[in-house]
Nucleic acid binder design. Sequence first.
RNA 1: GCCGGAGUGGCGAAAUGGCAGACGCACAGGACUUAAAAUCCUGGGUCCGUAACAGGACGUGCGGGUUCGAGUCCCGCCUCCGGCACCA
Length: 893
Amino acid sequence: MLRWNSIPTMPEKPYDHRQIELKWHARWENADFYKADEDSARPKFYVLEMLPYPSGTLHIGHIRNYSIGDALARYKWMRGYNVLHPMGWDAFGLPAEQYAIRTGQHPRKTTEANIAVFKRQIKALGFSYDWSREIDTTAPGYFKWTQWIFLKLYNSWFNPATGKAEPIETLPCPPECAGSPDALRQHRDGKRLAYVTEAPVWWCEELGTVLANEEVVEGRSEVGGFPVTRRPMRQWMLRITAYAERLLRGLEQIDWSDSLKEMQRNWIGRSDGAEVQFRLADAPSDIPEADRAILVFTTRPDTLFGATYMVLSPEHKLVDLITTPEQRAAVADYKAEVARKSDLERTELARQKTGVFTGAHAVNPVNNEKIPIWIADYVLASYGTGAIMAVPGHDTRDLEFARKFNLPVRLVVQAPGGADSTGFVGDGVSVNSGFLSGLPTPEAKTKINAWLEEKGLGRATVNFKLRDWLFSRQRYWGEPFPILWKPAPGGAFRHEAIPESALPLQPPDLTDFKPAATGEPPLARAKDWVCLPDGSRRETNTMPQWAGSCWYYLRFTDARNDAQFCGAGPERYWMGTAPGQAAGKPGVDLYVGGIEHAVLHLLYSRFWHNVLFDLGYVSTPEPFFKLVNQGLILGEDGQKMSKSRGNVINPDDILREYGADALRLYEMFMGPLEMVKPWSTKGVEGVYRFLGRVWRLFVDEKSETEFEQHQTAHGQDDPESLARVELSRAIRDVPPTPTQLKTLHACIKKVTEDLDGFRFNTAISALMVFVNDAITWETKPAAVMREFLVLLHPFAPHLAEELRSKMAGPNAAATIAYEPWPAFDPAVLAEDTIEMPVQVNGKLRDKIIVPIGAPEADIRAAALASEKARQFMEGKPVKKVIIVPRRLVNIVV
RNA sequence: GCCGGAGUGGCGAAAUGGCAGACGCACAGGACUUAAAAUCCUGGGUCCGUAACAGGACGUGCGGGUUCGAGUCCCGCCUCCGGCACCA
């Protein structure tokens, strides 16, 4: 056993992980084993883990993420694939900037320091990254291309006719714009995929910036949990809504978990319905013709006969026009009250419905009935048309409102089974609905839609919950927009793209990073940077953190290209669309990361990718073909890890005690990869013991003593000491016995199948089963042991490399990484006889041994002859004997 | 409320409709040791039963069902985790 004499209190280690890891890190570093190469004839495999934001220290959860990717990368190399497995840093973001605000230290400094720590920790874990492709999203050579992609968005529009993004120049010029450059310009600006708008946005006081819908959770910022409020501001938006349908449909072609796809579907929120026009009744003469109708969106046009009132959102533009003098004060009060409420309050105490009558009426187009128009904050200005027809008979919210304000309820859908139809919201049969009566709901919908269309009163339409992406932030530490504001006649300023040749646009140096309460970005302080000699000014907002991570997987295919964001050749090769590559699975072959980015990063990057695809810059419609989400690791107490709970596990401590192999192995062994699991340091100890058993399986005990003595004499880190360790004498070049072969091939089969199915926990248990068996063998055939090391390598690469180097002899390759993966031979596992359980009435009573190919009659006879089984059949006639070949026998009495 | 996912020993878990609990942790007993650590061996769902070995009954959140046979399939519930939530 190893004894670390210098530290007498430390328990003895099963093996010296430290020396082994140091040795192999140096070799991997120097030899470029994991460098990816586009020229290979082998099939490609692109495996990618979500880029980390380099914060203070690596989290134990990152390691689960990377261990999964690394095991697959190593496995695929051994299966003969040409693997691309890169790593980088998504390093723009709030924490570095918050730190800068507190301390005055430039975020660049903090970021560099954090990257250094992350890199050291990741390297200490021995992951197989191609470091020559390392990316830092904050490096000018990288964000140059982020800005370039922004310009593509800015200079494109979405053509509904082709369903694609196209250069803005192809936008047809409407007749009224002909000959007026100003009008044309306005027309174009209204269609760009990146556009400026003055709209209510989420403002976070504490962070001093606006946030996207996706970054606001229950009225608070996703980062930090600070309250957010609605506030109108001039902001940059990306027209992701144009891609709602594409983003929805694209999900069908990719291999993601159902739950993740469902989260994206919910967020996009497609809903099929109809728009219906309700004309105002007795409209005052001062209302222009265009405003004499209210457009509503409904998913239930079939219930039109049940509409007994209408509701506008308090912010609806018609409210002030239609309100009668008697109701004016009440309406004004209500609007003021709603405006005072924060959105948090609006959702939190949303239980009691509120609203007021406007005094105005509209006409229900199907029956010419006059119905009252109310305003209420349960109707949202931002969804649909901001107005509804209320059908209290068949809508929960309308019913609640109608009951509170004594509005009539009319039933127009009969619930199936004759149940009470009040408040029934499902599909039934139309009643009391004129020409719709008697029709089942789906047919009633079709019929009324046709009727509305014919009368010019409405049409079938689709609505989405997805909103455009608020893309600007009032921060310093982000990509500056490549946009200038040029003075125009009348003192206005107009946005204009800076030329591509001027990229990257670098941010100015600042010393004060504090946000302003006014919402003016910190960049505005850099007057020299902002104001250009010709009187134009730079845009002072920056892009959100998500910008850089939207496209990094493309940059990895050609990370050092100065002329393009990535070259078409490498892009096609690694995304799988180059000539001669197997089609059908375009994109990154495996993307591993946490579920927390379901509607942020993963939606945003799909959107950008779609645009780049339309414009011909990438060759696949979707970025990530296969995606898996590793589950969160909780603290040992089963709670989320956090400093305040004091249950955070520091990877450095685990690494020092148990080594990289044990840490990685444990994180893959703890359970199915997508499951949330509590941490257990005892569990790490368990797999560490397993690795120690592997070590002892291979090495000679006496030579270990020499190893220790050498260490004592020359210091713990002397690289020569490992050379003293010799291979166990039990490992010999002898042919394996059939049992030994069986043990090996059972292991090959299980590990191979489980790796293909991402079942790391059971793959590792199969390795353990092999070791538990092999440890009892007096003679260990070298061929068997060598193959076992190949199976071990994806999970514990350091130990596998070291032991293999002991076995391989001087002429072997320098690494195990390209050894061929062993093939499983079913013939080896074939048995002559098989043990079959015998059940009586489904209960296990005995076991019999029968030859493998025995005819059913023989098995039946053997089972019926069983003494133990007969005790339970006494006196009862045998009704039936079920024989499941190779499985079991069940006697029914 | 709606949409996902999950409920199996003391714990993490495993099980193409066919022997429930592989593998690991923790625990207990033993070997080695002056002793400990490490290592090795053995044990283990619960209950009844036996001097012991036998032997038996029950057992995968709860209640039904399908089946020769259900952790697995179907119906109805309960609990936990994640997401969405006045989205018309």
